[in-house]
Amino acid sequence: MNRTSITVNDLYKQYGDTVAVDGVSFDVAAGEIFGLLGPNGAGKTTTVESILGLRQPDRGSITLLGMAHATQARQIKARIGAQLQTTGLYPRLTVRELVELFAHLFPKARPTDEVIELVGLQEKARTPSKDLSGGQRQRLAVALALINDPDLIFLDEPTTGLDPQARRGLWDVVRELKLTGKTVLLTTHYMEEAEQLCDRVAVMDHGRIIALDRPEALINQHFQETAIEFVSVGDLPRQRLTELPGVTQALFENGHPTLYSTDVPRTMAGLFDLVTAGTLAFKDMIIRQATLEDVFLKVTGRRIRA
């Protein structure tokens, strides 16, 4: 676990006037599942594609398995597998033909059928890729990322567009990869996914890493509180809400308050007093544990999926 699979140091990439990645640095240890979490446009994909060598960063250094793209691109590519956010495939080739094609592009490969089964596409093995559903295409892309039995696997939003069942199926695949000692770098904008899968998570926003730690450490570090969310009807007495008993912090986003409380019963009592007094009306209340979503909201003031 102490060997380093990926080292990214001060990565910087600009498109025109837009800074996509603004000085990102992190290390991923061998055997680790590392998550890049953030909203669309946070710079996750640009970071991953720079690490893969698909984009030339303006600044910064990248080391993969102890090698650099400039000198050992082919050796690197033989030992990594990548599922890109949009994977182009020959549209008229079938699932099996595509997996076989990619098997032939690498010096060594896993058995075709094994990989197809791993992602649950046995039924679709004879279907041309253009006739697959979005979720099936995504799973095929993951299969192609695993065909060369890589040491290091990149999954760029692997579960976007998958139904809940397929998403859990893919989580199982990732957990199995971890059991066999593989290193995985995945990006996601699903909090739950990051919490469930990742050993460590880097939270990204506007091209920067704003927090990096184990998921539970991130939550504990920012919150000992319970979150109380509700949708207010009519005017919002912001000041009064902030001053309720037990509330350590109140965040307001589009008239949608989230109160973080160390003493839920007393906070609730205070809320009902406000309702009785006629200063507050609300509906759809949720009381829950703090999550990475709250971390993101607290650090950026925005929800991750705005």
């Binding site: 698909l54 082919r74 990548a82 890109l84 182009g88 020959y90 549209p91 690498f106």
Partner: peptide
């Protein structure tokens, strides 16, 4: 079409020359 469909891009992440 292959370029637009990003087939070539995907192939470029393999050891293929």
């Amino acid at each position: 079409q292959q370029r637009e469909g990003q087939v070539l891009r995907r192939l470029s992440v393999t050891p293929l020359t």
